[in-house]
Design a binder for these strands. Structure first.
Lengths: 167, 167
DNA sequence: TCCAGAGTTCAATTTAGTTTGAACAAACCG
DNA sequence: CGGTTTGTTCAAACTAAATTGAACTCTGGA
């Protein structure tokens, strides 16, 4: 207890805990690990940039988790390194523009799956066209056509999404 | 081996296996369990409606999985019960309109989270307004305002999404 | 060159979430 | 009724994924 006035800075206060919990929930919906939500959430309500060690101590997570979590968040464009004057240690700040967050998520988590899905389906459609039984071939080709339409819709929707979230 | 001509109907042929795999991948992106993808995938490439027992035998999953999976798919509006004349057993067909699938997913999996998030954040914003330190209060209120803006954006985007996918 | 601090890596562990299967309920029929 | 078939439930087992922490690399002084 070296700071009785402000409380132990290593513990989250109730408001901080609740905000972090909201982000933990949020990222679970997106299929990202809980630590990502904790880290981003704490950065989001911190007035100053935080170091990896700050995150480890305040969230009670391991250095490994913090390191991996920060890497993913950087890849998503959700955190960036703050300008730290002469310090060797790097400090992190959250990106808080929804456009940027959505864009990173779409680029890193959605597009790759969409693209690989498109490829697989294109190949399946070719296979379907070579089936002997005409009845079965017709049916499967229709279904594959349907899948291709879905993928095209998906591809068209993403840019619109980004545009709508971008303000 | 009671059907040498068409192969054992209990085993998926290679094309079927690949299509099922595509759906298994697809639902994982959406954060749904693998069995959901298997079941929907098999229904999607089946020319006839299938019973729970068909799914159990062809996918080698348990009755429990098939039952739970079908329930979730029904809730999502992704499968419906086929008109089965006099039969007691019920047969299932996939819904293949993207509008319906996306609508069900949004209604069941997205909206509830969005709404509960909105509520939590509204309450947090109130708490933030009662903070003593003016500097901290201002900062947190801004951040909460930002969160509320995100939620509003999310709420506005969903109907657009549905509209775009609805044809 | 050696040391100390910062950050990364990855095998082992833990946890969260899915699947199983046995027991149960419900519907139909002789 | 009793028996058979169909489908549901849920605690226990299992699996996939996240987290840990010890060993490592890298960098910047002294």
């Amino acid at each position: 207890m070296d700071d009785l006035l402000n409380g132990d800075p290593h513990e989250l206060d109730p408001l901080e805990r609740q905000v972090v919990a909201v982000f933990v929930d949020g990222v679970r919906v997106l299929g990202l690990p809980r630590s990502i939500g904790e880290i981003y959430g704490l950065l989001f309500i911190s007035q100053t940039a935080l170091s990896l060690d700050d995150l480890v101590q305040r969230l009670h997570i391991s250095k490994g988790s913090a390191s991996q979590g920060l890497r993913m968040l950087k890849n998503l464009g959700a955190v960036r390194e703050a300008e730290s004057g002469t310090e060797r240690r790097t400090y992190y700040e959250p990106a808080i523009e929804l456009k940027r967050l959505a864009g990173g998520f779409i680029r890193e988590q959605v597009r790759p799956h969409l693209d690989s899905g498109k490829n697989k389906i294109t190949r399946l459609a070719e296979t379907a066209r070579e089936i002997d039984d005409p009845d079965r071939r017709k049916f499967l080709s229709e279904r594959m056509e349907r899948l291709e339409t879905w993928m095209r819709s998906g591809g068209r929707v993403l840019p619109v999404l980004q545009k709508l979230l971008g303000q």
